[in-house]
């Protein structure tokens, strides 16, 4: 009777535990309570059991989605930085904004939506990085810890270089060197963070915690992109002179919108993939 009830378990469960369970049933006599317990166990396995290979595949897929979205945000961030100082110099922007208040509103909206997306990245990503580093430390995985050191070193280098440029007024060659250094550090840091997440032993349920912040990131990016496009259009219609008077020229603005658009598109497609994944996650 007990062996017959074993057939009620899902086939994936029986492949994994069937033999050992059958051996256990041979070791001890099956009572009515045993049969009832097996019956409830079979029902539970039908409802909750997720084969390990499916869990691992899902976790790998979620990790890849998170990395794609992070890289998309880096591209978006570059575009955002190019446009964010569109009000410089203020001597020309303020009068234009006074005549057309939409300019200031759209610029503020563009900045705010970008900051919201950055907050989403921090809320969704930092706990995962912290978890990955914590586990790597416990297991003494030197490679993963070195990746974290690269990421942290790149962020620190970027911060120090930015402070040096912001405090002083360096000549153009230094500014260009700063931009080149920033780009290198950005690429190094992003690659290190991406590899860190991909190599980390993160469980599916932990990765799913990043889903809600990811929605904030994607829609923050989309709002920021739309605000930038509207800002560009309003400038073109009401005061095209701003494109020549501001530090952010038409080429820089267009490049910024291009990066914003590409980053947002990738983030939205990544988000769409995740929303289609089944909300299984096993019995946890």
């Amino acid at each position: 009777m007990a062996r017959w009830i074993l057939r009620l378990y899902p086939s994936s469960w029986r492949r994994r535990y069937g033999d050992e369970m059958a051996a256990l049933l041979e070791d001890r006599p099956a009572t009515f309570v045993t049969c009832l317990d097996l019956f409830i166990g079979a029902l539970d396995a039908r409802l909750n059991y997720v084969p390990p290979e499916r869990t691992v595949a899902m976790a790998e897929r979620l990790k890849a989605d998170i990395v794609v979205r992070f890289c998309a945000f880096v591209l978006f961030g570059l575009g955002w930085l190019l446009i964010a100082r569109f009000n410089d110099p203020s001597a020309t922007f303020v009068p234009a904004a006074a005549a057309h208040p939409g300019l200031a509103i759209l610029l503020d909206l563009f900045r705010l939506a970008g900051i919201l997306a950055a907050i989403g990245i921090a809320v969704g990503g930092l706990p995962l990085v912290a978890l990955a580093v914590q586990r790597a430390k416990r297991r003494r995985e030197g490679g993963t810890l070195r990746l974290f050191a690269w990421a942290g070193g790149s962020a620190l280098g970027f911060l120090l270089a930015t402070l040096a440029v912001a405090v002083g007024h360096p000549p153009l060659p230094y500014v260009l060197a700063y931009l080149a250094l920033s780009l290198i550090l950005l690429i190094l840091g992003s690659a290190a963070v991406s590899m860190l997440v991909l190599r980390a032993d993160l469980k599916e349920r932990e990765l799913r915690h990043a889903h809600l912040p990811a929605v904030l990131v994607a829609y923050g990016m989309l709002s920021s992109l739309l605000a930038a496009i509207a800002l560009g259009a309003l400038v073109a219609v009401t005061g095209p002179g701003l494109f020549t008077s501001q530090d952010v020229g038409p080429l820089m603005f267009s490049l910024g919108v291009l990066l914003l658009g590409f980053g947002t598109l990738v983030a939205l497609l990544g988000g769409h993939r995740v929303s289609l994944t089944p909300a299984g996650g096993g019995p946890a």
Binding site: E20, R28, A42, P52
Partner: peptide, 29 residues
């Protein structure tokens, strides 16, 4: 503990990474 409850718990713990299987010894793991 009855076998159904025991293996339900084993499957959950294994899935969460709280326990891990060792190589089979005859038909017992």
């Amino acid at each position: 503990l009855e076998p159904g409850t025991l293996y339900g718990a084993i499957a959950r713990l294994e899935q969460r990474g709280l326990i891990e299987p060792l190589p089979m010894e005859e038909r017992r793991r």
